[in-house]
């Protein structure tokens, strides 16, 4: 395993009961700085795959090796590893009883033992970057969907993660708000963040990613650069899927 592989899965499987295989022997290596977009029809296992990477929904068997450590192992304290993997959810999942600023500072203060001033300075800096520094004192219910998702992204960034996982970050947004979230993600990609993104935004996949995984029925059927996947797909099902969505 080369040094710049940050996440590697080995024979990752997930079963619901006996029959339903949400993931079947998924083997992937994700390198530092890569922006990997996972596409595929609904129910193909792409969200399950993403959520198994930080064990929010642990796989049934196999290995997830994060920075050289198999985090599926029972001996590992998964919480320490999760601190280094930010996650952004479809439904934002901001904490409704906290202000935006508190949403962003609580984890660095409690987990990284940052001082209040330190955490708030960093949070305000990040809020400024996404144009929401004037909303620091607001509660999540006072923000629009696009604003919430931008906050959710910077909340994860406050922990200085090595990897960012995005689980359909724009699927719950009104169309006019998709752009503002994607541009934040694009900016993040340009800064060299390692990202794994499950999305239906083919434009984003084409423009920003440097690698695309096509999944169907719990398997990765195609793995290549955006040019390869979009212009010259090999697998029949990839071709079929792209015909439908493009």
């Amino acid at each position: 395993m080369s040094d710049n592989v940050i996440i590697k899965t080995e024979n990752l499987c997930k079963f619901y009961g006996e029959k339903i295989h949400a993931l079947e022997n998924v083997n992937v290596e994700i390198k530092k700085g890569e922006v990997v977009v996972v596409i595929g029809p609904s129910g193909s296992g792409k969200s399950t795959f993403l959520r198994s990477l930080n064990m929010i929904e642990p796989a049934t068997s196999g290995k997830v090796i994060f920075d050289g450590v198999d985090i599926m192992s029972a001996k590992v304290n998964i919480n320490l590893h999760r601190q280094r993997m930010g996650m952004v959810f479809q439904h934002f999942n901001l904490f409704p009883h906290m202000t935006i600023l508190r949403n962003m500072t609580i984890a660095p203060m409690k987990l990284l033992k940052q001082s209040k001033a330190e955490a708030e300075t960093k949070a305000m800096e990040l809020l400024k970057r996404v144009g929401l520094d004037d909303r620091a004192g607001a509660y999540p219910s006072q923000l629009s969907g696009g604003q919430k998702q931008r906050v959710a992204i910077v909340r994860a960034l406050c922990m200085n993660p090595d990897v960012m996982l995005f689980d359909e970050p724009t699927s719950a947004l009104d169309p006019e708000m998709v752009g503002e979230v994607l541009s934040v993600m694009k900016q993040l990609a340009e800064e060299g963040m390692t990202m794994v993104v499950v999305t239906h935004e083919m434009g984003f996949a084409k423009e920003v990613s440097n690698r695309i995984l096509f999944m169907d029925e719990g398997k990765i059927l195609e793995d290549g650069s955006p040019e390869q996947i979009f212009n010259n797909p090999q697998n029949e099902r990839t071709k079929d899927f792209l015909r439908k969505v493009l």
């Binding site: 930080n54 929010i56 919480n79 320490l80 999760r82 601190q83 993997m85 930010g86 996650m87 959810f89 439904h91 999942n93 901001l94 904490f95 984890a107 409690k110 987990l111 959710a152 909340r155 994860a156 922990m159 996982l165």
Partner: peptide, 13 residues
């Protein structure tokens, strides 16, 4: 909402 547990866990709590 289960998302609250997930978000909190994903931060490392």
């Amino acid at each position: 909402d289960v998302g609250q547990f997930e978000a909190s866990n994903s931060l490392g709590f």
